[in-house]
Amino acid sequence: MTAPTRVLIVDDHRLVRSGFSLILSVEEDLEVVGEANDGAEAVRLTRELRPDVVLMDVQMPVMDGIEATRRIVADDLARVVILTTFDQDDYVFAGLGAGASGFLLKNADAEHLVEAVRAVAGGHALLAPEVTRRVIAQMTGPPGTNGAAAAASGVQDPRLDELTPRELEVLGLVGRGLSNAEVAARLFVGEATVKTHLSNVFAKLHLRDRVQAVVLAYEAGLILPGDAEDPSRD
């Protein structure tokens, strides 16, 4: 039997920690191994308890979540998912720059929280769609540049030449901020099939994670900036 994923919860509000713990503890494949109320304690407990995933608040006393994430990731102690009520770009980019593997808002429902922990534990980067769209805007520049210019040229970016038509389609949908489940529903295939296609895309294009895939999709002109504003639309 596979050992459960070990999770450390970090937040300076006890009720928040208790709520996350309650959600995760009912899952057979997840185990909450500890709680911390500030970044310094998070770093110490990560070294001591060796969790697989740390759920990290941003604004905390003693040491904030960004610095704690940076120290944890630098020493390869665990993967970090940043959870915050602050839907602000500076937190997003600081967290990703510190090496966080995921970023979700605290108002995400229980199902998404559990999925986030599982995805990150499995080695996948995870971003909420609204965060993905801001990453795109920050990293690809204003409308009319990069992807728009590439699309206007009518010439496919040579980086995409190795992809099959289906892999191109999957990359485009991921670039619009859709989850694997949403891509599967859109293409009428199984989620496992989507994961296989996405793994092939990562391997062929030498991408580390979903964020890099999104940025490349825009840079290559596969999708345009407006395409990501509403992942649910056709």
Rank of each mutant, 00 (worst) to 15 (best):
L45R: 15
V194R: 11
D64A: 04
L96T: 10
F20D: 01
G97R: 13
A74K: 13
Y218C: 06
P61R: 12
S232G: 15
G102Q: 03
P158M: 09
V201I: 15
V211L: 07
A150P: 03
D234K: 04
R47S: 08
G102T: 01
L216Y: 02
Y218L: 07
G39H: 01
A110K: 01
S153V: 09
R71A: 02
L173S: 12
N200P: 11
E35R: 05
L77Q: 08
T196R: 15
L224I: 10
E41I: 09
V117D: 00
M56L: 07
V120T: 00
L45I: 13
P142H: 14
R210A: 15
A148M: 05
D230C: 08
D12I: 03
L178P: 03
L45K: 15
E167F: 13
L45D: 13
P231F: 09
A185V: 07
E67Y: 02
A110V: 01
Y91Q: 13
S18V: 08
E115Y: 06
A151G: 04
G122R: 05
L173Q: 14
D29Y: 02
D38G: 02
T164I: 03
Q138P: 04
D12E: 09
T85R: 08
Y91E: 10
L187C: 08
V62I: 11
E31P: 00
E167L: 14
L127T: 06
R159G: 13
T69N: 06
Q88R: 15
V155H: 12
F20K: 00
E111C: 10
E27M: 06
E169T: 08
L77N: 04
D230K: 14
V92E: 09
F103N: 07
P143K: 05
P142Q: 12
E219M: 09
Q156A: 14
H206L: 09
E191W: 01
F86Y: 15
L127H: 05
P158G: 07
N37P: 07
L126P: 01
L22G: 14
A40I: 04
G226D: 13
N200D: 14
Y218F: 09
T69K: 12
A116P: 02
A78P: 06
G226Q: 12
G19F: 06
H206F: 13
S18N: 12
R133H: 11
P165C: 11
A74I: 06
I136C: 12
S199A: 15
A228M: 10
R233E: 12
V92Q: 10
A98V: 06
L171W: 08
D87Y: 07
M139T: 03
T85L: 08
L163K: 13
A110P: 03
P142C: 11
L113K: 00
L104N: 00
L55H: 01
F202P: 02
R71P: 00
T145M: 13
L24H: 02
V131K: 11
D234N: 10
R118I: 00
M1L: 07
A116E: 00
D12Q: 11
K204E: 10
V26I: 05
Q156P: 06
A152S: 08
L178A: 07
A100N: 09
T69S: 03
R134N: 06
Q156S: 14
L222W: 00
V135M: 13
R44G: 13
I136H: 00
L22E: 14
